[in-house]
Design a protein around this nucleic acid. Sequence first.
DNA 1: CGCGTAATTATTCAAGTGTATAATTTGTGA
DNA 2: TCACAAATTATACACTTGAATAATTACGCG
Lengths: 215, 215
Amino acid sequence: MDDKRRKFKRESPEQRKLALIEATLQLVADYGVRGATVRRIAEQADVTQGLIRHYFSTKEDLIVAAYEHHMVFMTDLTAAPADAIEGSARERLIAFVVASLTPPVVDPRSLALWASFLNKVQNDPQMKAMHERTYAYFRDRLEDLIRDAYGEAKRQASDAKFRHLAIACNAVIDGLWLEGGALPDAFAAGELKNIGLDSVGSILGLNLIEEAKQQ
Amino acid sequence: MDDKRRKFKRESPEQRKLALIEATLQLVADYGVRGATVRRIAEQADVTQGLIRHYFSTKEDLIVAAYEHHMVFMTDLTAAPADAIEGSARERLIAFVVASLTPPVVDPRSLALWASFLNKVQNDPQMKAMHERTYAYFRDRLEDLIRDAYGEAKRQASDAKFRHLAIACNAVIDGLWLEGGALPDAFAAGELKNIGLDSVGSILGLNLIEEAKQQ
DNA sequence: CGCGTAATTATTCAAGTGTATAATTTGTGA
DNA sequence: TCACAAATTATACACTTGAATAATTACGCG
């Protein structure tokens, strides 16, 4: 008569936590933090809702863990390509800009996550600190790349000027990232990347147009 | 024994609607769309919750009305200063950039509202259309100002180039707006405005530094 | 093989949610 | 002044929410 109890498999804590975090990120992107209810998250992760509390003592905990996971992921995605390059500072700067303006960094889901978390980031001290750390890391990295590229080109500038340039370049990148995520169909493939390199180049007075890839 | 019925005053429909919309915007900025409950909105507007349904047939209606109100407000705030200027295209372009990078356009609350509405904007067709219209209006205005400024400076460019430049300048403005709203204490007064004028000037190859105000 | 513990499911609960409807009060026009 | 429609308050309802607790099940270890 009544349905039998649900079958289940034990998973390692790491796998389960990861699955719950990924389900959370998906639902936060789609419905916002409040719309990502524990019941929906459990369903998305294919478990029952009680299990969430077994791994995270509260929904808040899960949200914070998901946010941190996402931030680390995004940081890796943009910073790693620049680090992987052996070449000149100019080439590393190009790689940084390109990575920041290419999917999956530029993506509606990525923008939606950022927007959904903003409220919590502004109010929760823990998340605020996490956010400011990430932002400072990005801008400092960009400023270092700019300094190196200037050095390479035998150009000089004051500290204030470098700060100014880093803020401006960061703004171009953020703005293009925002627009690419908000209106994904408004730009051709590679268009944002090209506009970004052009604009950052203009601001810095450096030519950042990529040379043709060698075959 | 029991408290007496609450006293109240009749207001004109326009005043009441406006009060409800403003209360809604405040709570959406603070808690997001789902956090802005009808009970809290009613409390903020100093009425009882039943009244909301008298003016808006559903919460969704109220949210849409509040979003539209906010968009019109923001549009006026940035477009009007450029229109008010009689001078050259260059001066109008400067006014547009300055208005976009000065409070109350640059403001944590303004950013919070944008972020809170993003989910609805991406999913609700009505709100999506409203958003795309506003975005296109901004970028087209900017492109026109750029065209005029180029004409004034006896410079020429292709349509594709103008589109490219408008996207880039729009991105700088959006990026600085975002950062100013997200980290209000990270920038000195007027700093964003100066960086914006510098950067837009570099991208366009025009000098946009404001001349000293006449006393 | 079977036992114990942690993982997982199932159920319960109080508080909060949007909406519907009923009950009052206000101001206005005849 | 007085009735009446609109504005406003008050109450009720069905459903969702996060959290707490109880009941089961999987699986490693002896």
